[in-house]
Design a protein around this nucleic acid. Structure first.
Lengths: 343, 343
DNA sequence: TTGTAGGCGTTATCAT
DNA sequence: ATGATAACGCCTACAA
């Protein structure tokens, strides 16, 4: 073929009617003759007519594009999340503009601006771990671009958020460890500025307290999520006069670095010290020492919810309604116990 | 703010000049007075004017959107690849429309059609493993949408392709195994319909032959890439009268399933039988039994090349030039030897 | 029930 | 050097 794509104008010309007639016929407008409607639809089908989405979006001042910014797509958690986003987007005929921040706030700014210039209708973002101020994201408000924070949500409630309640999950996790007989429960938390870490810590403290144990802050370390930092944290815990017999790690990636190091230090992972974690990534099933338990955070479901939320916000924007009401959706995690024999 | 975004029309109104003057001033058109140019640029800056990409693309009949369809983004190989694509896209102000086929040809058709309706300017695709016919993709030719096949390329040369030369890589791999003293080298290949498998097999046969060994097809099994199928293949190899002492697997995911099964069968992985693989995924470093060697295929670089190729094709399309010339780019893989002690 | 015309933001082609 | 106008594809208020 390679001929030009048919337009309503072309159909109108061939049928000797006006473009508006064609437009109405194709959109089943009530005030149109049944006969003409069929003639138009018939020819449209023959010509393989498809409306030009670009033209429609342009006229409507919409792009039907939603920006999605994630730290690292290669992390299974985020690739699952974007799959959930994609699924809902496809159902609603939205398109995903994809970008990574590589956990770098400067890169994040670049990508946010690129998306603004592309006039995305909305943005779903899981901010980088170095993002402490949200100015560059909040600036989108000036452009009427709604934003949904996802998984890594700001502390402030003045934002639309979808996240997993790791606070509750952590309490449950500590309770489970207690019931298994563990009393010296350590925690390798993430960067202390981010909400994900704060929630875990609060859950940990609450969980320990509920078991009438004393919170010992010597058992709490932080990692900036690099391998080196995680290993430092493990080393500090191992060097304690009374080392822990259980270690909770920030997520499965931290877990993998932690147990790799522990293994090198001749610790029998999940026997001398048991390890539990967050995320429950399928890939851990293949690793030498999977976590004995991991908190499933349902990234796919989170992605779906985030996309549904942004769609709702984009529609409300049209309606020009309310005065700064923020949406929030919480997912309850599940503690998944791994069935396997530690070596 | 929340006011409407400024347009050239608005700037023109305020400056009492015509829109065309503004347009020319902003685009540094030669026939424009230096004074007016500065006045316009000044005001544009004050108003934070940004050209409406939608309007420009609409007029140019371009979307500046490139579709990318991958089987599974959660596979590290593909997430690396899309990162390479993203990087080049960003540099050239292209946007990525993202979709997954989940290795299902029907889903792939859906996504391809969705992208066609969105009028992507080009498509980069790594076809699903169940894609045997390419009609639905080739149909894009009728819409003047260039296609670049990526990694999993069709056998036919009548397509634009970016791929890794696993044929050469496999020869090298077999040579390395031979030099290490292994003589019974088995191969668990992928689905035999896809080019990736064909190339590996040819490389294997050539590699074995170059070492003056006899090709024994009993040592060659196939997997459809599911865990079960892979385990069947391992089982068959183990059941041979003369089992192999080295096994090459289709990729690191197949490797992981294979060694997990071998381990259950009380094989000492990488001692009784050594395992080598393709992809060299970082995640394997955390697994119980990483491949002793893995063929690095540089997915990021492949992604970059694919994006550059599609950009070139999209530009040529404009020029309405040549008669079906197909581009092809090949990346040479590297055999990476893992430094670690098998258990 | 159908046609006409204007507009979305921008660029290009004519004029002036 | 600058302005007026048409055009891209579609929709819609208004007119007939």
């Amino acid at each position: 073929m390679n001929q030009k794509l048919p337009t309503i104008k072309e159909i109108a010309r061939r049928l000797n009617v006006s473009v508006s007639t064609v437009s109405r016929a194709l959109s089943d407008h009530p005030r149109i003759g049944a006969a003409t409607r069929e003639r138009v639809k018939q020819l449209a089908k023959e010509l393989n007519y498809e409306p030009n989405a670009q033209a429609i979006f342009f006229k409507q001042k919409k792009t039907h594009v939603v920006g999605v910014i994630l730290p690292y797509i290669r992390e299974e958690f985020f690739s699952e999340a974007i799959s959930g986003i994609e699924m809902v987007a496809l159902e609603h005929e939205y398109t995903i503009l994809f970008g990574q921040s590589y956990d770098d706030v400067e890169k994040e700014k670049e990508v946010v601006n690129a998306m603004r210039r592309q006039r995305v209708d909305g943005l779903i973002i899981s901010p980088s771990k170095t993002t402490l101020r949200y100015d560059h994201i909040e600036a989108l408000d000036n452009y009427d671009i709604p934003v949904v924070y996802f998984d890594r949500v700001p502390l402030s409630e003045k934002a639309n958020r979808v996240y997993c309640n790791v606070y509750q999950g952590t309490i449950e996790m500590v309770g489970w460890l207690f019931n298994q007989g563990y009393r010296r429960i350590a925690f390798i938390n993430g960067p202390d500025k981010i909400a994900a870490s704060r929630d875990r810590l609060n859950g940990y403290i609450e969980g320990i307290s509920r078991q009438k144990l004393k919170v010992d802050m010597q058992l709490v370390e932080n990692t900036d999520l690099t391998k080196e930092s995680t290993q430092d944290a493990v080393a500090k815990l191992l060097a304690l006069k009374q080392p822990p017999n259980a270690i909770i790690t920030f997520n499965d990636y931290v877990h993998m670095d932690a147990v790799q190091y522990a293994d090198k230090q001749h610790i029998k992972v999940n026997r001398d010290i048991i390890f539990v974690s967050y995320a429950n990534l399928p890939i851990t099933a293949y690793t030498a020492n999977p976590p004995l338990a991991s908190l499933e955070q349902y990234p796919y479901a989170q992605g779906e919810k985030a996309m549904k939320m942004i769609i709702r916000l984009m529609n409300e924007k049209n309606a020009e309604t309310q005065e700064a009401v923020f949406l929030s959706e919480e997912i309850l995690p599940t503690l998944v116990i791994n069935q396997y024999q530690p070596r």
